[in-house]
Design a protein around this nucleic acid. Sequence first.
RNA 1: CGGAGCGUGGCGCAGCCCGGUAGCGUACCUGAAUGGGGUUCAGGUGGUCGCGAGUUCAAAUCUCGCCGCUCCGACCA
Length: 488
Amino acid sequence: MSKKVIPRSQNFSGWYTDVITKAGLADYGPVKGTMVIKPYGFSLWENLRDSLDKMIKDSGHVNAYFPLFIPKSFLAQEAEHVEGFAKECAVVTHSRLKAGKDGLIVDPESKLDEEVIVRPTSETVIWSMYKKWIQSYRDLPLLINQWANVVRWEMRTRLFLRTTEFLWQEGHTAHATEEEAEKETLLILSIYKKLAEEFLAVPVLTGLKSEAEKFAGAERTYCIEAMMGDKRALQAGTSHNLGQNFAKAFGVTFQTEDNKEKYVHATSWGVSTRLLGAVIMTHGDDKGLRLPPKIAPYQIVIVPIFRTDEDRQNIHHFLEPALNKFKNNGVRYYEDWSPNSPGFKFNEWEMKGVPIRLEVGPRDVNESNVILARRDTGEKKSYSINGIFSKVSELLEEIQNNLFQQALTFRENHTHSTDSYEEFKSLIKEKGGFIKCGWDGESETELRIKEETKATVRCILSDGEISKKMCVYSGKPAKYEVIFAKAY
RNA sequence: CGGAGCGUGGCGCAGCCCGGUAGCGUACCUGAAUGGGGUUCAGGUGGUCGCGAGUUCAAAUCUCGCCGCUCCGACCA
């Protein structure tokens, strides 16, 4: 294995997979499109998950778990939903294998009476249950989330961004009124924005999806949309107002206070392991990952430099009080006492994106100093061991903010406004990035632009200004201000 | 599903055109020195050459078939 990654500027997607495997985040599974999330990558996911789980619970939701298998017939109950997912479902048709001439074969006698599908998303099972659980307005709102794996049999896959099986959370809520459902949808959108920006340091735009891009079965899909290091857009999370579509499909009604029967209003929302792809592609550089401190598996790595056993002992004793303080205050650290050379460790931990490296050798011990190196800027400085805890805490916060600022500046530098379709085309072709412009809201327009430029409507800006704008393509008065970009 | 490429120790590759019993780098193991930006030297372990047929005295190499994976498109969180 070569030691360096393919340079990011030279080949972004080559760089991406290189970083993931070399940093030890994930590996390819034996079945096409599957991925093994290795301990270092999973630890990153756990930190993300725990941060979000807390926000979900703090806003009144509870966790539950619904089954992996769904009767095939369930999917068919909501017309748009089937159309969206039918093409990518794994289907279980048999329950048994048996010995054949050339090894194991599917036992034809074990064919299932009703085939089951592996969930591509759980709306259908969940709404089949909600029908049983919801009778009265007193049962509402029902606010349930689940952490689960789902399977979508995609043509083309990419580590974290689009794998056949992926991990996510999916929230499914039921409400008495349209307004309440809309409020819920937007509440979750704000939580996703907070997760992305404050924890992952990934700046996101929020807004509505176009008809073409919305979730199959939703009335409205809101999204958080981010710009990756190659200036392409990544949908990082979605929150759907499902209206009464699923309630009608599954017959979920409730009795109101004045004894009327009404269909409930629904929402669903999810973010997935794809977010880790966003973190990698937003912050990474030619040396590897750069992880935001709030979710980094290790916030600081200690690289001791020693020759003799005596050095080892001295360093160990020298560091002990500081490390205890780290431990007691929840700073995640790792001591690398492996026999590799210091230079090797520096590169290794930079590849893994650890925000701060602490170097300490006999020289420092004598002077009661340690050296701190920042992964985000590369800056290296000597500090007294006294008060190192507060210095580290301060630096972690600074790095978290700096990563966000860098990404935000990058996005702003690569977001262009235009009213001219000629300019639009050349921007997409030559420069990439986001294009902010007017759109007449017609699907036809969107389709044409997609065919001609490969750019799609990523996001209809909620705070868009349309008063004087014209559609960049048709020249008609703009209905929305939107972001166009090439997307993942 | 269309296009391209690749399957040879764990990983990355050479060898194939022109058949003759498998090699390089790295990783790994042992030892010694080294250690503040991918450390050096010495010794060593490890391969049904993707699978199956065929041609041949002989196949990683030639022929046919199959399978798998990666990348680029259409589709998607």
